[in-house]
Computed example of a mutant assay.
Amino acid sequence: MQQRHRNRLKDKLDQLWHEGITRIERWEMVSMFGKERVTVADWRIVQEAWAEMFEKPEKADALALMKVQNTTGQLPIAYVLLIKSGVKPLPL
């Protein structure tokens, strides 16, 4: 991963840290990782980078991933990362 892509990922993770949510466009992911498909291995790298932001990486908040789809394509157009502890069910 190029330095500029590492910086972009860090910016996204900083947003996640401060706001509890961030959106990463699919084009950003494929650009950062230099491939056409986003894979489980890519998300592991994101998770590892997230854990490294903590004094004790094993205490890093668990993350949730949501794919943003449109109706015309099979591939997601973006991904939303959330801190799991901040996700609550709708009060119905």
Rank of each mutant, 00 (worst) to 15 (best):
Y79M: 09
V40N: 05
K88S: 10
Q69M: 15
K35E: 13
R6G: 04
V80N: 14
Q3M: 13
I77E: 13
V46P: 01
L90N: 01
E25V: 02
Q3V: 14
L92Y: 06
A78R: 04
M32Q: 11
R23C: 13
G86L: 14
A41W: 00
E25S: 02
Q47A: 04
V46A: 03
E28T: 13
F33G: 07
E52T: 06
K88Y: 09
D11K: 13
S85V: 07
L90I: 08
F54M: 13
M29I: 09
M66S: 13
Q2F: 14
A41Y: 02
I77F: 03
G73K: 07
P91Y: 00
K12Q: 12
L65A: 02
E36L: 03
G20A: 09
L90R: 03
A41C: 01
T39W: 01
T39A: 05
Q47D: 07
P76L: 08
E55I: 13
P57C: 04
Q69E: 09
I77G: 09
A78M: 02
D42W: 03
E19P: 13
K84C: 11
K84P: 01
D11I: 08
Q74C: 04
T71N: 10
F33H: 03
V46H: 03
L16Q: 11
M32E: 12
M29Y: 05
D11G: 09
Q74M: 08
L90E: 05
M29F: 08
L16D: 09
E58N: 12
T39I: 04
H18D: 15
L81R: 06
V38S: 00
L65W: 03
R6T: 09
A62F: 01
Y79L: 08
L75S: 10
D61L: 10
K67E: 15
G20W: 03
I77H: 03
H18R: 13
I24H: 06
L63M: 14
E19I: 15
V80Q: 12
D42H: 06
V40D: 07
E58A: 12
T72N: 11
L90F: 07
R8D: 14
H18V: 14
V68H: 05
K88V: 12
N7R: 14
L63K: 05
P76W: 07
E58G: 02
M53K: 15
L65D: 00
D11T: 13
F33R: 04
P89V: 00
R23W: 02
L9C: 08
W27N: 06
M29S: 03
R26C: 00
E19L: 15
V40K: 05
V87D: 07
I45N: 04
N7Y: 10
V38R: 00
V68F: 02
K84D: 12
L63Q: 04
K35L: 00
I77M: 07
G34N: 13
L90C: 05
G34H: 06
A62E: 10
